[in-house]
Each structure stands twice: as structure tokens, then as C-alpha cells.
Amino acid sequence: MLPDRNARPRAVLLLLAALAVGACFAFMTLGAKGNWDFVLKFRGLKLAGLVLVAWAIALSTILFQTVTNNRILTPALMGFDALYILIQTTLVVLLGTAVVAMLDHNSVFALNAVAMALFSGLLFRWLFAGEERSLHLLVLAGIIFGVFFKSLSSLMQRLLDPNEFMVLQDSFFASFNRIDATLLGVSAAIIAVVSAFVIPMLPRLDVLALGRPMAISLGLNYRREVSLVLIAVALLVSASTALVGPVTFFGLLVASLAHALIGNARHAVLIPAAVLLSVIFLVGGQTILERVFGFDTALSVIIEFVGGIAFIILIVRKAIR
């Protein structure tokens, strides 16, 4: 029984790693014509962006599901990326696009990310770090937060000068084609720092997944741990939203698949599995769409479609149980 239990996740991880590497290789080489120097550099940047986004979404979703102790909520469903957009809009309204454009891209992003970490830290800590609340209340709260943030942003956007609005609007649609290359460096740094920070937390994440009462009984400083994880999630969502815009259901899809494939709750295995799956879907999907079918914009639509179906299946299965 024992060797079997450890061998399965290891085999799954190896297979996923092979598939992910294969997808990246195909993305870099398939249908390449002309100057290899140019092709590799051009595609390399895009690949780096996709991998970063895949990494950020997978990690943030698993972390979020662990602290909220359920498998249906994701940061996107709770309105994290809507909050990011609200903060971005607020910045533009307060400072004006001229100032925002004058500021270095990276510092605007940094400002956004810090504000995001602060706000979501406060807001979601209030929801999740206290005594337990029902899942229904949380889903409802998430929907309401999301709608509230979105309407507030759109109200502010309406007050903007049309030119400023155009600039801003560009960043609000998920697109895996138009990765903001200037932000690659900072996003990579943020994601690396957050990941390095998560590694020593892995055993504590396993305990957090047992739920609040048991985590406290086993001696975790629950409030602190949850707050730290939520800040990590906020930073990851900031990075991925800044790169490609808001993506709602993708995280849910890869997290659910990772749980199903690994069949065991150790985060040391679960997180790599989710990240690899995420890379396979994003890079593989983009390769197939771009190189094989020659479509350009549809990946986000397809991924949201499949992820949305996965969400509905999860809800229905929970309802039956």
C-alpha cells in the first residue's frame, strides 16, 4: 500500500513535467520560418509570459482554496482580479493617464500590487480569518464583491476622458496574445519571491487544509498564516492580471484536475502538479490554436468555456452530496 501511494504522485508529476516541456518545445519550434534568432527571441518572450501566468494562476488558486478550505472558490471568483482592475482605474482617475504614462510602467505596477496586497489583505482577512462562515455566504459575498468592484470601476471609467479610457481599456480583456512584455521582469521577480516564500510553508499549508479548528488545535497561528497566504495570493493575482488581464475559471480547472490526478493532499506534490497542468494547458493550447489552426485570439474564450463547465460540474456534485 505505502510504495503505491508515493509512486503514483511521482509518476503523475514526471508525466506532467514531460508534457509541459513538450508543449514548450512545440511552442518554440513548430512552424518556425526564417531567422531563428528572431523567432526564438520573439517566441521566448511570449513563452516566458505564458509560463509566468500559468504559474501565478495555479499557485494562487491552490493557496486560496487551502486557506478557504474548499474546492470551489478561486481568487477570481471572489473578485480578486476585479479589485485589481478597480485599483488600476482609481490610479488612472486620480493621477490621469498622462501621469500614469509618464511614470515607469514597472512602478505603476508595483504601486498597484502593493495597494492590492493591502486591500485584499484587509478585506479577505475579515472574511476568512475569523470564525467559519458558510460556503454559500462566501460565494455570494464573492459575487457581490466582484460586481461591486466592476461597477465601481466602470462608473469611474465613464467619468474618464475617452482617450484615457482607451488606454485603460486595453488592459481589461484577457488575452494570451498580448502579454505586456515590459512587465515580464517584475512579474517574474514577484512570482519567484512568492514561490520562495511558499516553499517553507508547505507543511503548514497541509495543516491549514484541515480547516480552522484543527489548524488551531495543532498549534498554527491561524490568523497570521491566513493573512500571509492571502497577501501572497493578492500578489500573484496582480502579476497575472497585469500580464494578460482577468481570467476567471482557469485556476479552478487546473486546481480541480490536480486534485483529481494526485489524489492526495500534500502541497509539496499538489502545487507542482497544478503548475505543470496550467503550463500544459496554456502553452499547449496556445501552440495548437496559433500554429495548427491559425486562430489568434480564441484561447481565453476556450479556456474559460471549459473552466466554466468544470465549475458547474463541481457545484452540481457538491449539491448532490
Binding site: 482554496q65 474548499n70 487544509a209 480547516g211 479548528p213 495543532l218 498549534g219 491561524y222
Partner: peptide, 20 residues
Amino acid sequence: SDVIARRLAILRQDNHLSAR
């Protein structure tokens, strides 16, 4: 909390785990 955890343990009534 971790000092208390070596002194006192509690098990509540309903323990559903989301983890397998």
C-alpha cells in the same frame, strides 16, 4: 498557539475534510 498545542488538544463534533 504552538505551546498550547503541546498541552491541549481539541476535537470538534463535525470534522469534514476537503482533503483526501
